[in-house]
Every structure is written in C-alpha cells, then in structure tokens.
Design a protein around this nucleic acid. Structure first.
Lengths: 138, 138
DNA sequence: CTTATACCCTATATAATTTATAGGTTTTAT
DNA sequence: ATAAAACCTATAAATTATATAGGGTATAAG
C-alpha cells in the first residue's frame, strides 16, 4: 500500500495541476484543501521540486507550480520518488535493486521469476499513466 | 514491498512443497534451512494452518505438512493472508476495502481508476501463479 | 531599506508497525 | 512417565512512517 506521503504527493500534484492558470500556489492552500499538516507537506513539495517536477518561488507572492506538463509525469516517477521501489521484492527492483537477504540463488528462485512478471505488469500501467490521466477525471 | 513475514511464509511453503514425500516437517528444519527465528516462523506456520493451507501434527514425530496441492495455492492467497491487501490503495482493495481518508469523492478520483487497473494487472499474475510454479524452478 | 511573506533545510520527536522473544499449555509417540 | 513438538497469547525490541520545530534565505511591496 502507498504511504500517506505518496498519497499526499498525488493530492498536491493534482491540486497544482488544476491550478496551472495561476502563477503559484501556497503550501497552505493545498494543506487546507486536503487537511494535510503544513510542515509535512512542505517536505514533500521540496522533494518534488528537487526531482524537477515542481518549481518554486520564494518570498511574498511566492509558492509552488508545476514545471512539467502533466502528461510528462508518469505515476511511476512520483511513486519511486516518495515511496521507493515499486517491485514487491528488492531482488526484482529496477531502480532500487538489492539481493534478498535469505536468498541463496537468485537465478533459481521461483518467486523471483514471478515477481518480475508482477513488476512488469505494474509498470505497464504506472509508466504509461501520467498526472494528466488523473486530472482528467476530476 | 513484501514483509519478511510474507517472504518467510513463501520459504516455508517452498520447503514443505519440496518435502511432500515425508509425513511431517519440523519448524526447526525450516528455520535452520533459511536462518529464520524458530518462534517467529512458528507464528507464521500457525496462520498458514488456520487458513487451511497447512496441516499439523502435535507431539513426538509431529510437524507441519502441506494439506493442499501446490497448484491449488495461488500466490495471492499467501500474500493476502500474511501481508494484507495487494492493492496500492485501500479504496481499490477487493479483500480489504476501505475508503481513503482524505478522499472526497471516490467516483471522481482519477488515482482510484488507475489503481484499479494496477490491481487487476497484479492479480492477473498472482491469482494464476501458484506454489507449484515457484517449486518448479528450484 | 525595512518588513512581512513564503519557501528552504535539517534535526528531532512521536506514533505506528514490524519483527522477534518469552513462557507456559496441550497433544502424542515411545 | 517422559520427552518431543505444536499451540497460544502476551510482551519487548527494532524499524519505519508521520509529524513537528525552528531558524535560514530570498523576494515583493511600501
């Protein structure tokens, strides 16, 4: 299951996507809209900015804004950033690979094979669906 | 990512599947084979028994054994039992449904729609692949 | 050029969850 | 009887997730 952090990130991105007409959006506007702690959200937006998804402006009249076209932000990118691996096992993660601690022989591990399939099926959706897709619905 | 508990369950089931010739297998045999704490594993095997996947025999000469044909144990069943929901959001879980806390209108939630797709793709693999499939490889 | 505003950054505290341990109870073969 | 092995429930320890705190820095406006 996705963590609150990741869900909050999606909420924030949705909000920002819906307000692309205005130059900037305040952290506070988003935190009030969804009942998210201001400070917690602040950290999340900071990560999104550092990842190049958001831009920001300091000082009076400042705030955050989407720096990318929503259709160029795959959901997989947001999940990997806030959540970490999408795969169900570290040994099949494309971006956060690690061998499984108790695994003796990855090449012969049956679970490994299946989990590669699961990962690929998940990615088929998550790499192709973007922020734009989740904005459309609302 | 799957918890250790779930991974241990798969290890135990794999071990039991490979030793179906013998009447019973000791917790200790499995815990030693994979370096899992005896007591922790005990709790896991207990859950698998209560779920009707394993049988057990008490007392001297006792132990655990697979009560089901490996091809009749889908991986999804094991994951749901030890891990909980397979879905990435509570609002799209088939077995553990809950509305998302901050969600105002599920019907209009774009993330909801995508996550239903992700869930279905995951299940396409996890419902169809069984214990038998992960035994084959080893 | 001062002030209020709003993001920036890092550290720490709190809460929740996961992992592990503990210890006695019951059943069964010998 | 005795020893073996699962059964069961409670608690402790470790880890991770969530939240808070507080000063730092840039900027617009007057």
């Amino acid at each position: 299951m996705l963590s609150k952090k990741t869900k909050y990130a999606f909420h924030a991105l949705t909000y920002l996507g819906k307000h692309m007409d205005q130059k900037t959006v305040l952290i506070q506007d988003i935190s009030e809209e969804y009942g998210i702690s201001h400070k917690f959200l602040e950290n999340i937006l900071l990560e999104l900015r550092k990842a190049g998804i958001l831009g920001s402006k300091k000082g009076k009249g400042g705030g955050y804004y989407l720096i990318k076209d929503p259709k160029d932000v795959p959901l997989s990118k947001v999940i990997r950033l806030l959540e970490g691996p999408i795969a169900l096992l570290p040994c099949v993660s494309l971006n956060y690979y690690e061998p499984c601690a108790e695994c003796k022989n990855e090449a012969k591990c049956g679970l490994n094979k299946v989990m590669i399939q699961v990962r690929d099926e998940m990615l088929k959706v998550l790499e192709n669906k973007t922020l734009a897709d989740i904005l459309d619905k609302e």
